[in-house]
């Protein structure tokens, strides 16, 4: 059963009047609306959602990241319910899927956004509330470069420690090790052409 986001939003705003939350509509076929949470309030909101008996979102099923180099695209996917000023620059977004196992409700989709994609990529870690976030936040740190402040053990989990890039960012360029392709086509052909010998003068 999908959660009633408007009711949850008003309940959170009553309990935590200082928290900045906004409802985001999803016009796509999935129709999964979400709550956009300000990073500073994320841990408090998660704790409230988990500990309030009428909500009891006790399971963090999934944490994932999205890279939005163009903020207009992000607002087209998660449409703001009220007119808001668009973000000035691209940002990284982390999406949390919460479920309530006693009430059989979910997923409740939370979104949190970093300030930009270069320097201010910090977000608070929710490991203190949901232990299951530990490895998933490490994976997002590894592949997107979001730095989770307060994470107990923020290391790369898939790539090696010496690796510097974040492969799931849109502007990541994979290392060019296509020295040989038997039947290249499309993007691989373009890469393979870089390794072709120069045409001999005849």
């Amino acid at each position: 059963m999908m959660p009633d986001l408007a009711a949850i939003l008003s309940r959170v705003q009553t309990a935590l009047p200082a928290a900045a939350l906004a409802l985001r509509r999803n016009p796509g076929p999935a129709g999964q609306d979400s709550l956009l949470v300000a990073p500073a309030d994320l841990v408090a909101v998660c704790r409230f959602l988990r500990d309030t008996p009428e909500l009891a979102f006790d399971l963090l099923s999934n944490v994932t990241g999205v890279d939005w180099p163009d903020p207009a695209t992000a607002d087209a996917v998660a449409v703001p319910a009220e007119a808001t000023a668009p973000a000035a620059c691209g940002f990284l977004e982390v999406v949390y899927h919460l479920y309530s196992t006693p009430r059989r409700v979910g997923p409740l989709v939370l979104r949190a956004r970093t300030a930009d994609r270069a320097a201010a990529v910090q977000l608070p870690s929710v490991v203190a509330v949901y232990r299951s976030a530990e490895f998933q936040e490490r994976e997002i740190y590894d592949l997107f470069g979001v730095i989770f402040t307060g994470h107990p053990d923020l290391r790369r989990i898939l790539m090696w420690d010496e690796f510097l890039d974040h492969p799931l960012r849109k502007d990541y360029v994979a290392p060019d090790d296509y020295q040989y392709e038997p039947t290249p086509h499309d993007a691989v052909l373009e890469k393979a052409k870089l390794h072709y010998p120069a045409k001999a003068e005849s």
Binding site: W160, F163, L164, D165, P175, Y180, A192, Y196
Partner: peptide, 23 residues
């Protein structure tokens, strides 16, 4: 482990990219 890829990316004593005849 290098900062972007393995170093080296292959062992030239064992393997070398085949010479490509296409231009």
């Amino acid at each position: 482990f290098g900062p972007h890829d393995l170093e080296p990316t292959f062992n030239p004593d064992l393997w070398n990219p085949p010479a490509i005849t296409r231009h």
